[in-house]
Every structure is written in structure tokens, then in C-alpha cells.
Amino acid sequence: MNVFRFAGDMTHLFSVLVLLLKIYATKSCSGISLKTQELYALVFLTRYLDLLTDFISLYNTVMKLVFISSSLAIVWCMRAHPVVRRTYDKDQDTFRHYTLVAGSLVLALLFHDRFTIREVCWAFSIYLEAVAILPQLVLLQRSRNVDNLTGQYVFFLGAYRAFYILNWIYRYFTEQHFSRWIPWIAGLVQTGLYADFFYYYYLSWKNNVKLQLPA
């Protein structure tokens, strides 16, 4: 564990807490893409298959449980909670996220470390996570007013993978056999997708105006 990875995990955890806070405090999920939340639940379920078989550390196991349970809780909330579900922008959240799932699956079948169920699922989860934010970014462009918590949620979600890239650079130079090109490339794509969001987020913060993404 190095400081970059710990910072990345904490930023990721914080983004989930901000989203839970927004939904719980405002009893609303307006501006949140259910499709992105479903993709994230799928990412965690396919990545943490080893949750019950391999014990790496208490921290690792606890964090996996937190990510899986929070993503499922958010999807349940947006689909079934009597109050929250009515605030979901169903007609705005129209990204065809099944194409992202299919594309990631094809990529995982083509490019993986080893052709085993677990490694293909792991590669699938890495590729899917890289594009899972797309429905959310499209929804932000459509929904005119982005409330602060939603903006902060997306910001921390983008920042966490940037910390992971620093972690991979650090591990590359400190550990001999550490070379993971799959998460490298996917992580760069993922963080790149946030580039324009980070730019407009910075502008809104600098000019102290509401965050608005150009359509």
C-alpha cells in the first residue's frame, strides 16, 4: 500500500459517501444517472469475485464490501425507494449503456492477463469502469443545473483514478515485476474522459458560478 493508492481509495470512498449524502439528505437523485450506478455495481461485482476466496487484508475486504453494498444500495434506492425513485430523470438518462457492457466484454475476451473466468471478469471490470461514467457525463450536459453534491461526486470519482495512475507509476519504479498495462491504458482513458469535466468544474469554482457543461 502506498500513499497514492490510499489517497485514491479514500477519494473513491468519499465520492460514494457524497452520493449517499446527496440522496439521503435531499431524498432526490435528480441529476444522477441510474445507468452509471448500474454499471458501477456490475464493475464491483465482477471485480471482487475473489472476495470470498482470497483474503488480502482486512482493509481490502472491508473496502470491497463497502463498494459493493453502497453501489447496490444506490441502484436499489433509485429503482425502488418510493420517494427517491420519482426524482430520477428517466427521460434524460438515455445513454445506451448496454453497448458499453458489450464492448467491455468483447475487449475482455480479447485482451486479458490469462484466459480464466476470474481474469476475464477482472479485465471486463477494468474496461467497464473506464467508460461507466459516460451516461453520467451525458446526463450532466443535459440537466442544466448541476447541484453541488452531484458535481463533487463526479469530481472525486474522476480524481480517484488519477491517484491510481500515480500509484501504478510508483509501483512500477519500486516493484520489479509490476507491470499492469490493462489498468494503465483503461485508467488513462477513464481519467481522460473527465478532462473536460475537470476543466468546467475548475471554471465554475474559479468564477464562483454554477457548474454547467456545454451541450
Partner: peptide, 10 residues
């Protein structure tokens, strides 16, 4: 044998 690529990251 092929060492298990343990994914120790989240």
C-alpha cells in the same frame, strides 16, 4: 507454475 496474478488493488 504460473504465479497467480493476485489483484491486491481495489
Amino acid at each position: 507454475e504460473v504465479e497467480e496474478t493476485a489483484h491486491d488493488e481495489l
